[in-house]
């Protein structure tokens, strides 16, 4: 027997979770932008979209995160650590690619130094994913070994029912099982058939890509220049990416006091990795684009055993000049060998 959550009971379910002390965040469309934001009820949610324009990453790795407040006095420097609030949060209606993105980034934020800002938020958050029933031209999860219903990174996965009455509820972690306890009386126990997941075509052979990238001679390949010629060097692809995680530490204030912040940074920017001497090891857009691809499909795998891409396709979907990872990897994967 499987467990079912009916559409008509979603508000009761959210209510029970909120009574249990959770804040619920879901995709909300506001001011012409869909992103995860706090909701009180189901009517505020935008669930029938392919995916929100912005990812849930920004609720774990903030676009600007205050780290410490400092004050420089005559004899000493006073600092005060600014720790994130420990709210219990439910992310409801996450897409599998965005959930996987969190899972992909966990080792990065924990390998040499455990980033409290990331993990405090991670530990108090439950990810409730809804398997996809639609995809668009830019979706490419199947090209990176995932699928429209991959449970990677999900605590609970909801599979939309074929008859449209609600969702099949499948917990995947202990945290997910615990989340279902306060709502057990709201869920039905009956057999039901989930709606089919969309067919997302495979757009490149990721193994071919990884083999090509691993070949040192290809580091200087002409391909990098060709594929990145129209890149304008904005950070849109990196900032909308569910796995891009580069940041820059900035002090904001005057000579005597201020706040040290951790801000998003992007390998697309000309200033990225610029040395104080003025030298920049990646002084052209093509070398910066190469860095992005190499980081995701070579260096990251070498270090953490996984590619740093979950196939959401936002890098192409929202690129001002119609570039993106998909096309570059397609070209690499189809090179004669």
């Amino acid at each position: 027997m499987t467990r079912i959550l009916l559409n008509s009971r979603l508000d009761d379910c959210l209510g029970a979770w909120r009574s249990a002390g959770f804040t619920v965040l879901a995709p909300v469309k506001r001011s012409d932008l869909t992103r995860f934001d706090e909701v009180q009820g189901a009517s505020e949610m935008s669930l029938d979209i392919v995916m929100p324009e912005r990812t849930i990453k920004e609720h774990f790795f903030l676009q600007t995160e205050p780290l410490i407040r400092y004050e420089i006095k005559k004899q000493q420097i006073e600092t005060e650590e600014m720790v994130p609030p420990e709210r219990k949060r439910i992310f409801f209606g996450v897409r599998p690619c965005d959930a996987a993105g969190l899972d992909i980034d966990d080792p990065l934020f924990g390998w040499d130094y455990k980033d409290d800002y990331w993990f405090r938020r991670r530990e108090k958050s439950v990810i409730v994913t809804i398997a996809c029933t639609s995809a668009d031209d830019f979706c490419m999860c199947t090209s990176v070994g995932l699928a429209p219903d991959s449970p990677k990174g999900s605590d609970v996965m909801l599979h939309p029912l074929l008859d449209g009455r609600g969702w099949l509820v499948v917990p995947h972690t202990d945290r997910g099982k615990a989340l279902l306890e306060p709502v057990s009386s709201i869920l039905l126990e009956e057999a039901a058939e989930p709606a089919p997941v969309p067919a997302v075509p495979v757009k490149f052979d990721v193994n071919n890509v990884m083999a090509w990238l691993a070949e040192p001679a290809n580091f200087e390949s002409q391909l990098w220049k060709e594929v990145s010629q129209r890149c304008i060097g904005c950070g849109s692809c990196t900032y909308l990416c569910p796995t891009c995680h580069c940041f820059d530490i900035q002090d904001e204030g005057d000579t005597y006091s201020g706040i040290r912040r951790k801000n998003w940074d992007s390998c697309s920017f000309a200033m990225f990795t610029m040395h104080t001497s003025g030298h920049n090891p990646r002084n052209t857009q093509s070398t910066r684009w190469r860095q992005r691809i190499m980081h995701k499909f070579n260096y990251y795998r070498g270090k953490f055993g996984v590619n740093s891409c979950s196939g959401c396709g936002r890098c192409t979907r929202q690129c001002p000049v119609d570039m993106g990872i998909t096309e570059t990897l397609h070209e690499i994967s189809n090179l004669p060998r």
Binding site: S31, I232, C234, P320, V321
Partner: peptide, 16 residues
Amino acid sequence: KEQFSKCIKCYACRQV
């Protein structure tokens, strides 16, 4: 204020 609170400083506006 509402519109600018959405900005992520990707500088696409500048670059294009």
